[in-house]
Write a protein that binds this DNA or RNA. Structure first.
Lengths: 220, 220
DNA sequence: GAATGTTTTTTGATTAGTCAAAAATATATT
DNA sequence: AATATATTTTTGACTAATCAAAAAACATTC
């Protein structure tokens, strides 16, 4: 059985790998993500390499093997199902659930996970719009477009918000910017580095492109 | 913050202390309960003593201090609320929930615990009838009588089953012997070492006094 | 291409939790 | 009481995960 520390390394490695478009993940990046000293990562990655969970290229970086990826996806599945469960059943705020799920993801058995999945009617995304891997370890890879790339006049539906920070999430929710909401891009001004969107039945909001880049939509 | 190992020692110490009618708990007993070598317990108890969580009498035994007890009760509260939650909301079988709760009890935040408590409408007992300590660390101490002490003809309601083993619990459930069920003691034969009870609307069951001793009732 | 800076690895140490086996202590039995 | 048995403590060792700081490797810049 993988310890919860190992599960965290694999999960974080998976997420970094995604972020950097499938390149090897640098040790420093992983150290930051894990909030751990660089030397600790080197040591850990070596042992994960010996267990066949990662492929390690000294001085270059590291990536998951297939079995490491399967394990990472299983952790991610638990994390995301738990998040949705916390929002839907226990009515926590979406800005809180990431932290809670960080703990619970290591303590949920397959039996309980299956019950949650069933209760939520086999959902495919968590409250932030992040896809929930299947029990078999498959992830739907729908291509979405970032709000920061939308043209003026675009009509779309928010599908995903990529920021687990409570601050940003509370802000977004307060302005009506959460998954499921329909929006119209009122104005995208490259020079002003800003996007103005109008969520359905809400006041228009203007946000910088850095913030807009964290919100992904599906064109309508 | 107490590690989950420390939480387990405190919880087990509390339970053993109950079992042995408030005597100091012998190191060997704790070692058995924790499924750990005796020397390990000695070492652990010493450090718990230094943290002021237990009072340790070398060569004699150990018991919780007030602050250790408060912590133990908080763990027990999580454990029992989780058990009830698993049965009521996720519809697990009462014979499974103890094992699951062993894991989850260390991963539930106060926020989540409060939501569960609210959802279940501030329950006072878990699926086995074990009392759920309040958030302030108070436990209701209702005195119940064991089925093994009941006289022939006694009419009573099952209130608690003290055995976390899946085997016994499945057996008991199959025979209608679970908390809430009304029973009549058809016959208590001291010489035969057996008790025959008839659960409401079920066939009568005859069980040995050792088994009957694990079932507690409230006289009606 | 030598000097400077950044990243990664190595080294030596630390903490929590554990075990096996030896030593000490307490309890029972003749 | 003297011996045998059981329990507890001590000792030395191990694993997983971590850090700080020195060393090595790589990258950048003048």
């Amino acid at each position: 059985m993988a310890t919860s520390t190992v599960e965290d390394y694999l999960k974080q490695l998976y997420l970094e790998h995604q972020k950097t478009e499938n390149a090897l993940v640098a040790m420093g990046k992983l150290a930051d993500a894990m909030r751990v000293a660089p030397g600790t990562v080197t040591a850990m990655i070596k042992t994960l390499g010996e267990s066949g969970l990662v492929q390690y290229e000294p001085q270059v970086g590291v990536k998951l093997t297939r079995s490491g990826e399967q394990l990472a996806l299983h952790v991610l599945r638990r994390h995301r199902l738990v998040e949705l469960f916390l929002v839907k059943v226990l009515e926590l705020d979406w800005s809180q659930v990431h932290e809670e799920a960080e703990l619970l993801e290591h303590a949920i058995s397959d039996t309980v996970l299956e019950r949650i999945d069933h209760l939520l009617d086999r959902p495919s995304a968590d409250p932030h719009g992040d896809p929930i891997p299947t029990a078999a370890g498959r992830v739907s890879r729908i291509r979405l477009v970032s709000l920061s790339k939308c043209k003026t006049g675009q009509h779309a539906r928010i599908a995903r918000v990529i920021d687990q920070g409570a601050g940003f999430l509370r802000f977004a929710e307060g302005r009506g910017l959460k998954p499921g909401v329909e929006v119209v891009v009122e104005q995208h001004d490259e020079l002003a580095d800003a996007v103005t969107v109008q969520p359905m039945d809400q006041a228009p909001v203007t946000i910088g492109t850095a913030a807009a880049a964290k919100i992904f939509v599906k064109a309508l």
